[in-house]
Design a protein around this nucleic acid. Structure first.
Length: 533
RNA sequence: GCGGGUGUAGCUCAGUGGUAGAGCGUCACGUUGCCAACGUGAAUGUCGUGGGUUCAAGUCCCAUCACCCGCUCCA
């Protein structure tokens, strides 16, 4: 499949730039890390992805409604949802080996680390001389040097051995809390510094702490806080879902892999509300349905997979989560990247917005309280329960959340469509599903004379009313087919000499090159039929 | 944030301190008449950006930005 030189992803990136699918943001100023633009073909493709999703998930169903909420919401939304706490992780870097750690991961990792295990043995041998630290220094410079190369420089840098290290050497519980030495090399760590994963802004002209606000890191919370509004303003009944497509923002530490991890990205999210007794069934339903959606749009091979999360991988509130993953060409062989997560979230979200921020304790969700016994983050206090008229029962609905990345999906469709077939006169082509193709058809006069343009142009003008189409009379016919192959246009209609005699045109199929003749009056009908195959 | 690599035309890339190049693509004209044909011609460059060294910098040095790879992170 791949070209002899360079890897496939480079070819895809080059084609996307060359043909106007994806550009780097602010390119003429040198670009900006983690932001991307969609060009004329890209915007059509991505819009087709979103429209296909909206059509199939909302319009084609009677248990779904849509929503479009603001990107900036009340700051309390993010405090209650847990994003405020989780998104401002404290991070530490090792001054010796430069590794980056989440502060709350350092202790546990240290307790398990090889050098620290050896160090514990050393401390045990020196029970009698707790006052002296020399044995630690000696160990760091000699026997311990292989396991903990950073320890000796760290001691030199700090000027002494931190007593807590020796204490921790005697007590594993203390070790799990010690965030001073690097689990990897024994080096000294920087003080914990906050990494703000949410974009901050201010409402109003004055930038003060009181009016600090956040760009949403997910669209889901907008759905939860509008749950009651939707119930009250529509006649929809449980089980039902609310869908939303929109931009979200995360200050990723390392934007990487083309558009896969961007700081500004678009989500297609569903929150499906149901009775707790039926949530397991609905979870499986949505997991399978979403997997099928990708398959039907062309991600059909072994590069797409469904991966059920392990128990220890689940968020504290989730009773089940599956990722729909794609083997992107920029990943290592055998690695997959997430396109969509389908999560069983129980009643976590609606309860949070009623009661306040929740945490898991002994397998139960309880209010997160501070040292003073008061809630850490207060909820809205509004009643978000649902009364089921048929069951005569009031309850907090459970939620199934299929959360898809529009940009990731679009990128996967691009990667999957990219095909190199050396047996063709123009080897590079994009095999987009007809529903997703940015240009649905092209109309050509075989030659730009002899009255052929006069026949072809009206056909084109007619098609253009219903679909994005192109007319091309320049260059040789082969070159025009090749140009359309590269854009992923599924059908080309060509007017030739015979058209003048019997009124037929040729239809050329992008994937096979196969041609057939149809009457020029049936072009629109033919295209309509084949686009929705 | 750390380490390594890369950055020259729309794309892919050559380029030895001394005049900015090629292939492909694009455009025009001619020719051809169903799969990137051919001929002639044309347009397109702050050599990523900013400093420095030098008589002279795409080339050497420093900084910076972006992309790729590895580490880290990925709620």
């Amino acid at each position: 499949m791949s070209q002899p030189s360079g890897n496939v992803m480079d070819k895809i990136v080059a084609l996307c730039k060359r043909r106007g699918f994806i550009f780097q943001s602010s390119e003429i100023y040198g670009g900006i890390n983690g932001f991307w633009d969609y060009g004329p073909l890209g915007v059509e493709l991505k819009r087709n992805v979103k429209n296909a999703w909206w059509n199939d998930m909302v319009h084609a169903r009677d248990d779904m409604v849509g929503l479009d909420c603001s990107i900036i919401m009340h700051p309390q939304v993010w405090k209650v949802s847990g994003h405020f706490d989780l998104f401002s992780d404290m991070m530490q870097t090792c001054r010796q080996c430069k590794k980056l750690y989440r502060a709350d991961h350092v202790g546990p990792e240290l307790a398990e680390s090889k050098w620290f295990q050896a160090f514990r043995g050393l401390v045990a041998e020196h029970q009698e001389q707790p006052a002296s630290q020399d044995f630690v220094e000696q160990w760091a410079e000699r026997k311990g040097k292989k396991l903990a190369p950073g320890l000796a420089p760290a001691i030199k840098a700090i000027g002494r051995v931190d007593e807590r290290l020796i204490e921790a050497g005697r007590n594993q519980t203390l070790a799990a809390k010690l965030a001073v030495y690097c689990p990897n090399c024994g080096g000294d760590l920087t003080d914990p510094r906050p990494f703000n994963l949410m974009f901050e802004t201010h409402t109003g002209a004055l930038q003060e702490d009181e009016n600090k606000a956040f760009l949403r890191p997910e669209t889901a919370q907008g759905i939860f806080v509008n749950f009651k509004n939707v119930c009250d303003s529509t006649r929809i009944k449980l089980p039902f879902g609310i869908a939303q497509v929109g931009k979200s923002f995360r200050n990723e530490i390392t934007p990487r892999n083309y558009t896969f991890r961007s700081r500004e990205f678009e989500q297609m999210e569903i929150e499906f509300f149901c009775h707790p007794s039926e949530s397991g069934r609905w979870y499986e339903y949505w997991r399978d349905l979403r997997m099928r959606w990708y398959t039907e749009l062309g991600l059909a091979g072994s590069r797409l997979r469904l991966r059920e999360h392990d128990k220890d991988e689940l968020s504290h509130y989730s009773c089940g989560t599956s990722d729909i993953e794609y083997a992107f060409p920029f990943l290592a062989e055998g690695d997959f990247g997430e396109l969509e997560g389908v999560a069983h979230r129980g009643d976590f979200d609606l309860r949070s917005h009623m009661e306040g921020k929740l945490v898991a304790k002994d397998g139960q969700l309880v209010l997160d309280v501070g040292p003073d016994g008061k809630p850490k983050w207060k909820g809205s206090g509004k009643d978000l329960t649902y009364f089921d008229d048929e069951r005569k029962e009031r309850f907090v609905p459970h939620v199934i959340e299929p959360s898809a990345g529009a940009d990731r999906g679009t990128l996967a469709f691009i990667c999957e469509a990219y095909t190199v077939d050396e047996s063709r006169p123009s080897p590079e082509l994009m095999k987009f599903h007809p529903r997703l193709a940015p240009i649905k058809a092209a109309v050509f006069p075989l030659v730009n004379k002899d009255g052929l343009p006069e026949i072809a142009e009206p056909i084109y003008r007619d098609l253009r009313k219903r679909w994005p189409c192109q007319y091309d009379a320049k260059a040789s016919i082969g070159k025009r087919y090749a140009r359309m192959d590269e854009a992923g246009t599924p059908y080309c209609f060509t007017v030739d000499g015979q058209t003048k005699e019997d009124g037929t045109v040729t239809v050329r199929d992008r994937d096979t090159g196969h041609q057939e003749r149809i009457d020029k009056s049936r072009v629109a009908e033919y295209l309509g039929r084949h686009l929705h195959r």
